[in-house]
């Protein structure tokens, strides 16, 4: 192969993985939440809150670790509001999620304007640098894409492995599935349905907040209004396409990431196909996959249904 092609391929792969990482993180969070029976379409709000608070913290302290923690806390705050309103007040989970998307979009824009004013130059922070893993990173093509990435990429891969063990090989995983599939049976068996669901929602907030923090701390280095621009909704799609399996979610995020990376590359190359064709691609794929997997519904039976102990 000639040198430019290899270089293009390497940067393309690396870009794909960078695009996929925040989606993987948020998608894994939503997977945990949905397995417990809580559907939260407020991932967008979780990510946006995570991005905003991590930016604010790093801007004030210069400490990226604190920024990450703040982002995770910001995400968790949103998901806990969702959890309380949908589990305690038994509200329609979809609508709560949607309302939170509006609320957090408004709140972050408002607080950002209040803190920094109307500026033409966006306030920025230093981004986290990639880590070069010796020897492995020198493998042609794959080396730079896989082993010269930032810490979050490695963390996401570790989470995928960890969660696939957690879901399918531990008793906690069984409990999580039980609560989402048949809360009454789980309750009868002595599981604390709502406690498990709250914990699952917390995990969703922490991971989604991390995904949002990634956008600021690694990818962009600045914050602006509506920074996530629909990434939270895309994360929901990766959960469906990945069939709520950690490896599947990562695979789906990579498909979306590849479509995005391809779109940017083709735009710079001046190819006359509208970039929207590629933006559309992951959704069309997901719908086609859904159509082919008809009849094998993988939705948890109690998804979106609040558990009422004293009702039949």
């Amino acid at each position: 192969m000639d040198v430019p092609l290899i270089a293009t391929l390497t940067t393309f792969l690396a870009a794909t993985i960078r695009m996929a990482t925040p989606l993987t993180l948020a998608g894994l969070g939503e997977t945990i939440s949905e397995k417990s029976g809580v559907i939260n379409i407020g991932v967008e709000a979780i990510m946006l809150s995570g991005a905003f608070f991590s930016f604010l913290t790093v801007f004030a302290t210069g400490n990226h670790f604190l920024g990450l923690l703040a982002g995770m806390a910001g995400g968790a705050a949103v998901s806990m509001v969702h959890a309380v309103v949908s589990l305690r007040c038994k509200a329609n989970q979809t609508i709560v999620g949607l309302a939170l998307n509006f609320l957090i979009l408004g709140l972050t824009s408002f607080l950002f304007l209040k803190s920094f004013g109307q500026t033409t130059i966006l306030p920025s922070i230093a981004v986290i640098k990639p880590i070069q893993i010796p020897i492995l990173s020198r493998i042609p093509i794959l080396g730079q894409a896989l082993f010269h990435q930032d810490i979050f990429v490695y963390l996401a891969i570790a989470l995928v492995i960890g969660l696939s063990v957690f879901f399918y090989k531990t008793e906690w995983g069984v409990s999580l599935h039980a609560v989402g599939e048949h809360p009454r049976a789980a309750d009868t068996a002595g599981l604390q349905v709502d406690t498990i669901r709250y914990l699952a929602c917390l995990a969703n907030g922490l991971l989604g907040g991390m995904g949002g923090a990634y956008l600021v701390l690694v990818k962009l280095g600045f914050f602006m209004e509506n920074l996530t621009a629909g990434k939270g909704y895309i994360a929901l799609v990766t959960v469906i396409l990945g069939r709520r399996n950690p490896w599947g979610v990562m695979g789906a995020a990579l498909v979306v990431g590849a479509a995005e990376a391809l779109q940017i590359r083709l735009q710079t190359m001046g190819i006359p196909i509208p970039s929207q064709v590629f933006s559309m691609f992951p959704y069309v794929v997901t719908i086609v996959v859904l159509l082919f997997s008809i009849g094998k519904s993988s939705d948890p039976s109690a998804l979106g249904v609040p558990y009422e102990r004293d009702k039949r």
Partner: peptide, 21 residues
């Protein structure tokens, strides 16, 4: 900032959904 409209709208819905409790 106009984003106050989004905040109010979102809060309103959350409060209405939570008002039962």
């Amino acid at each position: 900032p106009t984003s106050i409209a989004s905040i109010i709208m979102g809060t309103l819905v959350v409060l209405i959904l939570a008002r039962k409790s």
